[in-house]
Design a protein around this nucleic acid. Structure first.
Lengths: 247, 247
DNA sequence: CGGTCTCTTGACCTCTGTCAAGTAGAGTGG
DNA sequence: CCACTCTACTTGACAGAGGTCAAGAGACCG
């Protein structure tokens, strides 16, 4: 089932885990030896749906994905953003009913691992259990910062904050060839991320450009001076726990 | 160090874990045998502070507590609400830098356990590791629903939604003598929970009362018909994973 | 080169915030 | 039991951030 080394594989995931948790060589080998299958999806494809029961944990090897929930009136909110290297569904470890939708933001390459295989690793290898818990806790910490963002910052800071977060999270795996400064979302998706409307994202983006925080070419948005963005955003990267190894 | 049975102890915490995860008798005994100390705190006391490093996991035996973050401009957002039986700081398992503040909402009784003791249990007892992971994941799921609440619901639904959540979460441990229908927060705290201002909470509460969703006496607020609240809130309790054992 | 999806822009509206003054509970001390 | 005080709640007038609607312009695709 495993494929050649230039195909999507588990190495980027392993690198991501090692960025926050130490793993002995034999545990690294155990992860590298996990059986998996590969899947390629187009933008907006559903990876998992609310209400389903999951038996599988996809790993995002290339591209972006997001978790999303909607109200009955149709309001749609993106509640998490996943970047290359991220495991997409530790949320379903031992909790099989999925409470949100998981969708591809761009075209994505996935590597699919059975949740039961992860559960076996957790039961038998404490260092892996630890790494997975840390991974889950860091996603939870990001969620808390997003709550602060939605609850207490205005549109300008909110957007600047999201862009800062993207910048620093991508630094950790710095994988693909694509320019890390290019924002991969449409204005509508930015709206869904930030609890705003596309129209207001447009106005806010224009204001960020006026202040030199982003540059734009055609439909594309590119990050400008990170210092400018940070000061607009009231940003501190503590919540990303990027230096957990040093702790 | 352990105290008599009418003092705060670990039993309510154990009950909470068992409500979502099965534990063999010897694992239950291992939890009951954890060394701990007891602490009693007044409302608004800090339990943990952002930036500190934690070595300890308080268990909330009685009363309410919350996690809270602030922007530099002073905006304050409550990002999680904890009820009796909840472990307050699994967030610091293997991630010792605290990224938020933890405060008592009411007077609280805490039982303090060393994080290293939990880490030993996780390494040696898979069923306990599982239960703790489920606990963490359910808090994360609640966080996602709150993001939807803040991002896409108006003040009336938002408040109704919070009250519904409180109602159903309290059903699971139904501990104290105090009437579970009494809302333990001030209007200012409700504002901090919902990303609103105290003034607007006041107006919204009045509207909820007008619609028969809550009753009020003096400063107190009491839940009215849960069906009314649910329909105002667009509420479904799936995200609380209350039936995880049945899964 | 036509079709479609995204982005842009302006006019107008509304939900929630701000400010400020007043009222009512709850606890304290006399 | 009554004043006193502190805090929480209440209310109204006004302001402003962001939403809504609708039409048009630009990008990108086959």
């Amino acid at each position: 089932m495993n494929t050649k080394s230039d195909q999507p594989g588990l190495d980027i995931f392993l690198r991501k885990l090692l960025s926050h948790s130490p793993l002995p060589a034999e545990d690294q080998a155990a992860i590298a030896a996990l059986p998996y299958s590969v899947r390629h999806l187009e933008p907006n494809s559903y990876i998992l749906r609310e209400g389903e029961r999951s038996g599988v944990c996809p790993i995002l090897c290339a591209g972006f994905a997001y978790r999303q929930k909607s109200t009955q009136e149709g309001g749609r909110q993106i509640v998490a953003l996943k970047i290359p290297g991220d495991a997409l569904d530790f949320q379903s470890l031992y909790v099989r009913t999925i409470d949100h939708n998981l969708q591809a933001l761009t075209t994505v390459d996935l590597v699919i691992v059975a949740l039961s295989d992860f559960e076996k690793l957790i039961a038998n290898r404490p260092a892996i259990a630890r790494a997975i818990i840390v991974d889950i806790l860091i996603e939870a910490s990001i969620g808390r910062e997003w709550l602060l963002n939605l609850g207490r910052r205005n549109a300008l800071s909110r957007l600047a904050h999201l862009l800062c977060e993207l910048h620093y999270r991508l630094l950790d795996t710095k994988s693909d060839g694509l320019d890390v400064r290019d924002v991969p979302m449409t204005q509508e998706q930015l709206a869904d991320l930030l609890g705003l409307t596309p129209v207001h994202i447009n106005r806010t983006l224009k204001e960020l450009e006026r202040r030199g925080a982003v540059a734009r070419h055609g439909r594309g948005v590119r990050l400008g001076a990170i210092a400018t963005l940070r000061s607009l955003a009231d940003f501190s990267d503590t919540y990303l726990h990027r230096s957990n190894l040093a702790d």
